[in-house]
Design a protein around this nucleic acid. Structure first.
Lengths: 207, 207
DNA sequence: TAATGTGAAAACCTTCACAGCT
DNA sequence: AGCTGTGAAGGTTTTCACATTA
């Protein structure tokens, strides 16, 4: 069984390897990859060792090969289909964000419960009523829901999302929703990041 | 010395306590707080024990009191001043995002290197040239920089930001910039979150 | 009775250090 | 010489379990 922390680091490796390839490199050592990512070489080697032997002693890792292997391990060699739930300010920013599609995450449907928003086309996608989520998730083979609704609605929205058969949730609301085990959730909240940062900033000021 | 993982959880406690207060509660036990956050009661008690004794045996924690204490520990009982660097699509979404100000993070300046953007007013803030960052950070007492520039510019932008005297950086670009020790950085990248999620989704599909 | 605060134990994760390959 | 892959050591974090207090 691979520790979850390791899984969380693999995407960093994928990203760095892709950047090294663009920069014209073909081979990389755990030392220089670690230098890019501020991670120790031993940790990188150990992480990779959970999945196999990808390097050559004395040489390092072939970047193309390792990248492809890691992408396969993470399931990135296929397209993933996402729906967006909540078409407020944040939802609209997400649907127009050009960073998901090139990484293989395509937003194929959008939902909102406000009747004034239903039927509008945002970012090329027609907004549907929440009641349609179950049918659409099945018809469009949606794998992931990106949830951007106000905090007070999240729990009930997530219950609908889970009932529709979606197994992965990217939650932008500032709460920790309850999900059944078997559902994979990730939370994005920049405020939490700032609030742990200020602990350290405060210490530095008070010296 | 308090472990960093503990510091990362304190904002979750602050958020949950504030929500409990709004919901009309005055007291909470580690058990019920843990239930809200999907964290074990023992972990909550241990985390809090690094900073003092905040509860009453047999009763639990007074929410108002614990909230105030934790906010003080994290440095949230003051306003923090941030600047935004990079006024592209993402930067504009961030400056218009209404979630920072109510939490005490005020965006007081904005920078971009594109001469066509300099001088424009976005979200009530006049965009300045990057060359002005040093003076503005000092004049406006900026504590934190929120960086939303394209990946290839991040490293040099961050060097300017650090040179200007900013100690905290919230980085939205998909790279791990190098910062001197003493600088506190947090990274936001929803793609990384999705890419670790798919590892588990893939496993579930393949059964 | 109900719940905290905390040493000690257990689990987990990172780093070391080196055999072995190129 | 240079670098991987990996057991073992070391360090950190979580959980246990219980004395203690309201």
């Amino acid at each position: 069984m691979v520790p979850e922390v390791v899984i969380l680091r693999l995407p960093l490796y994928v990203r760095a390897l892709a950047q090294l390839l663009v920069a014209g490199h073909e081979v990389v050592s755990s030392h220089s990859l670690g230098n890019h990512l501020q991670i120790t070489p031993a940790q990188i080697r150990k992480d990779l060792s959970y999945f196999g032997k990808f390097g050559k002693q004395g040489r390092g890792y072939n970047i193309r090969f390792l990248l492809k292997e890691l992408r396969g391990i993470l399931g990135l060699e296929r397209e993933w289909r996402a729906c967006l739930v909540g078409m407020g300010r944040l939802g609209r920013a997400i649907i127009n964000y050009p960073g998901f599609a090139p990484q293989g995450f395509e937003i194929v449907a959008a939902f909102d419960d406000d009747p004034r928003k239903v039927g509008r086309v945002v970012g090329g996608i027609a907004v549907q009523a929440m009641s349609e989520i179950e049918g659409t998730v099945e018809a469009k083979k949606v794998d992931i829901a990106i949830v951007a609704v106000p905090a007070q609605h999240v729990q009930s929205v997530i219950e609908d999302v889970v009932a529709s058969g979606v197994l992965g949730i990217l939650n932008y609301a500032p709460v920790v929703p309850k999900v059944p085990r078997g559902t994979v959730m990730r939370n994005i909240d920049p405020v939490l990041s700032l609030q742990s940062m200020t602990f350290y900033l405060q210490q530095m000021k008070n010296i």
